[in-house]
Simulated assay, not measured.
Amino acid sequence: MPATNSPNEALAPVIGPGVQVVAALLRREHHIVLVQERRDGQEIWSLPGGGVERGELLTEALIREVQEETGLRLGTIGPLAFVVNTTSARYPSTVVLTFECSDWSGDISVHDPDDKVITTVLLPLNEAMQLLASSAATRPEIEPVLAYLDGASTNQVWSYREDQPAS
């Protein structure tokens, strides 16, 4: 019979590659861009972004994902806002890097090849934060964004195991 881990023991790491994800906090003065997408039968609000494809640099993935989900073209990539490290049965060893970007141009339109993004909007910060707070997105997707927008320090690393903060 296999041994079970006590609640205080660390789980054995999953063998194999992790998942790299990039996200963009697209800011214009006191407004930010959010995307609404279909995921697991729900409609959620989140920042634009997605998976880094094999052979792609982080900046290339960010530019591609922003273009696909928002129609906007990134100029320069802004500073790293925060990092989220999660692990779950569905997505083991995921690292999400969120960059704050204010150098972008174009008109908002959706060109999502995955056909998950429903709409993209530029909203006043307080309205965007309310939508994020009520979103059905996972805790690791929402909590760090809200803390950052509320004035948390930059370059903070957030860690979650199965959507719960890791100690």
Rank of each mutant, 00 (worst) to 15 (best):
M1R: 10
P2E: 13
N5V: 09
P7N: 05
P7D: 04
N8R: 11
L11M: 11
A12C: 08
A12Q: 15
P13N: 11
V14M: 08
G18L: 08
G18I: 06
G18T: 06
Q20S: 14
Q20E: 14
L25Y: 04
L26A: 09
L26C: 12
E29V: 11
E29N: 15
H30Y: 09
H30M: 10
H31K: 14
I32H: 03
L34A: 05
Q36I: 00
E37R: 15
R39V: 07
R39C: 05
G41D: 10
G41N: 14
S46M: 10
L47F: 06
L47N: 07
P48A: 08
G49L: 03
G50A: 10
G50Y: 10
G51I: 11
V52Q: 11
G55K: 08
E56Y: 06
E60Q: 14
I63D: 07
R64D: 09
R64W: 05
E69A: 00
L72C: 06
R73E: 08
T76P: 02
G78C: 07
F82W: 07
V83F: 02
V84H: 04
S88P: 13
A89V: 08
A89I: 10
A89G: 11
R90V: 07
Y91C: 05
T94C: 12
V95F: 00
V96Q: 07
L97F: 04
T98H: 00
E100G: 03
I108R: 10
H111Y: 14
D112F: 03
V117L: 08
I118R: 13
I118K: 07
I118Q: 05
T119S: 15
T120E: 03
T120V: 15
T120I: 04
V121T: 14
L122T: 05
L125Q: 08
N126M: 11
L131M: 08
A133F: 00
S134W: 02
S135W: 01
T138V: 04
E143I: 02
E143D: 14
P144V: 02
L146R: 11
Y148V: 06
A152P: 04
T154G: 13
T154I: 12
Q156E: 10
W158C: 04
Y160W: 03
Y160D: 01
Y160C: 00
Y160P: 01
D163P: 01
P165S: 00
A166E: 06
A166V: 01
A166G: 00
